[in-house]
């Protein structure tokens, strides 16, 4: 059993986008702040109340809202953020589809939308429009009215089937 006192900091290890990181945190520090302080500012803070999904990342293979996870809780986890998607200067098919389908205006929700789409398409590679809408129900966009985002995810599913990794 490990006990960390309220005033004490503790070391945590995270594997972020394939690289190892070690940092010291207070128990109350939220994962979203830990990630942003390490330079992963693509992880956005939107509502800070587990509603909007702007802070969505992949933790140990599943999408989570990083504003509702503690840094200590994530110790030892593998994390993927939006910064880890493009490879060798080439955008991920979901990023390409968001670009091509004009699925963003202000772009604030986009990293969260894309990370959730990544998890969603891994579960359902061939979704209907209704399933896509359910799949991104934990992510809010205040600009686009969702139409182009839904189209982009549909387009991404086609691209990813054509070019499976």
């Amino acid at each position: 059993m490990k006990v960390i006192e309220p005033d004490q900091k503790t070391k945590i290890h995270l594997k972020i986008n394939g690289k190892d990181y070690e940092t010291e945190v207070e128990p109350r520090r939220l994962l979203v702040h830990v990630l942003r302080d390490l330079g992963f500012t693509g992880v956005h803070i939107g509502c800070d109340t587990s509603n909007c999904g702007a802070c969505t990342i992949i933790m140990n293979g599943k999408s989570v809202k990083s504003c509702t996870v503690l840094g200590v809780e994530a110790d030892g986890s593998e994390i993927l953020t939006i910064e880890g998607l493009a490879k060798d200067g080439k955008l991920h098919p979901i990023q390409e589809a968001f670009w091509e389908k004009h699925a963003l205006q202000c772009g604030y929700c986009t990293p969260g939308m894309i990370m959730e789409s990544l998890w969603f398409l891994s579960q359902n590679p061939n979704p209907t429009e209704e399933e896509i809408r359910e799949g991104i129900s934990g992510n809010l966009c205040r600009c686009t009215g969702y139409q182009n985002i839904v189209e982009a995810i549909k387009e991404a599913s086609t691209k990813m089937k054509a070019n499976p990794k």
Partner: peptide, 16 residues
Amino acid sequence: MYPPKLGYVIAENLEE
């Protein structure tokens, strides 16, 4: 919004 200061215990088993 930050949680208040608190301690943290990582239990390895149910009894702990």
